[in-house]
Design a protein around this nucleic acid. Structure first.
Lengths: 255, 255
DNA sequence: CGACACTTTGACTGTAGTCAATGTAAGTGG
DNA sequence: CCACTTACATTGACTACAGTCAAAGTGTCG
């Protein structure tokens, strides 16, 4: 299992332990909502920020509680879930580095968000952050646009849940995760230049994300593997062998 | 088919044809994003507003085009759709009176919105509206909170699409439409005080909203009717006979 | 009246779900 | 070092829910 980084990747130092916590070296700086903020807005944000590390399964926002803090994801993956009274579960959002977790001004909130993998966050105390958003329309503007992109993603996922076959759902998951893993710091290719990523979810969570059972997920993984579309190095490590075939599998109901 | 309005309803005059187009008599005034705006913000909005009437099927925002205008729905229902290359369709949003149609500052937008029924809109030219939003953080704040409520609704629907049975989906649709129809102006009860509403979608669109086929939708309507949960007066007119049973049917997979 | 759009119903099929057993890998303690 | 546990994943056999295909029914409009 050789692992070589794409030569175009420029590894940046997070300096997670820096006392100064400067935004300059932050890996999320160029993509998160803090991108394009004015110097003033950015330093106001930075002044109330705090780094956090979460273990898999640790909650960020618990159902029925006011969130303690909001955060930008620096590394790792966060899952948002909704559950029915009898326990059936649906993952309604997967959040990746540079994504924002939690929504200011939300009152109702039947939300639950937790770390799917180990996660590093840049967090902001809830009330201070809300005050900051009120003071700086620029920050609100970016949050608004980010919310719209999340809404669009949710609606794309509705199309997947309502209209795609199991095969298409699994293939779409792979293309989505590959796309989100494509960043200057996080991209990963094997020795032959083929895209590769670690799934942030186990089979059960994957099923809850795709609206399937874990057995069906496992079987569809196998089919894509047998067809030479992907390779599996362990149950979580996926290499895309045939990107074109994967794209077809993600939008065509037959085969 | 007797139709009596709930005595608590206070019918207001839309004055759709008034030249002055005052917001004072507007039916959406108290619930739409224009609620809680300052006098200044409201009059700025009002100054660029224009009433529009749409026939069923008429598009508001076409896929791949910059929207011409944004709008608040005064009456009727609007559907947002996403389609796969091979034509499979999913309705990703149903919008009711007081809802906002279209999103300022959106660039990508694989959005399509069209009138599901006859629709009356209070519309705003896209560019003028965007300029207004930039100038008035208060308007943006309301739009932001509205976007969050739409995101929450989308995620609730993801739970429905991914995890509910056909029976539950249809029952959930009825509870959702009943809830949205419950307004001071639009509520409708039969002679015995039972809640009643007209479905804004035909069977095919209903199927596209619930992630089912139209035949399955038709059969589940029949089961709920046979069980005495609802009554159908024509294919579109639903009366809720047993609200408790309907709530159970909406969240319990067995029967 | 016939044309058309929409809906209902029936018979059959197939995809994904269910239930159960087995496989795999990492971690624990004797 | 090796049983044993635990969590997760795979595979198989069978089932059932919803989909497909087809026909008939209903209502509206010209």
């Amino acid at each position: 299992m050789t692992k070589t980084l794409n030569p175009t990747c420029t590894l940046q130092d997070n300096r997670l332990n820096d006392v100064l916590r400067s935004c300059d070296g932050c890996t999320a700086r160029s993509k998160a909502i803090c991108a394009d903020l004015t110097k003033e807005e950015l330093s106001a944000l930075n002044a109330i920020s705090r780094r956090r590390q979460l273990r898999p399964g640790q909650p960020i926002i618990s159902d029925q509680e006011q969130p303690e803090y909001f955060a930008i994801i620096l590394s790792g993956t966060v899952k948002q879930t909704k559950v029915l009274p009898d326990g059936r579960q649906q993952i309604v959002g997967l959040l990746f580095p540079s994504d924002f977790v939690g929504w200011p001004f939300e009152t109702h909130g039947s939300h639950h968000a937790e770390a799917a993998t180990a996660v590093q966050l840049c967090s902001f105390p809830a009330q201070q952050f809300e005050r900051l958003v009120r003071q700086h329309p620029g920050i609100q503007h970016h949050l608004f646009r980010y919310a719209l992109s999340q809404l669009d993603a949710a609606q794309d996922w509705m199309l997947l849940l309502g209209r795609k076959t199991a095969r298409e759902k699994v293939a779409s998951l792979f293309t989505m995760i590959a796309k989100r893993s494509r960043g200057p710091d996080t991209c990963d290719f094997d020795s032959q230049g083929r895209e590769r990523f670690a799934l942030p979810l186990n089979r059960s969570d994957t099923a809850d994300f795709l609206g399937l059972t874990l057995e069906t997920v496992s079987r569809q993984f196998r089919v894509l593997k047998d067809n030479g579309v992907i390779r599996l190095d362990g149950p979580r490590m996926v290499t895309i062998l045939d990107p074109a075939a994967l794209d077809i599998a993600a939008t065509s109901p037959f085969v």
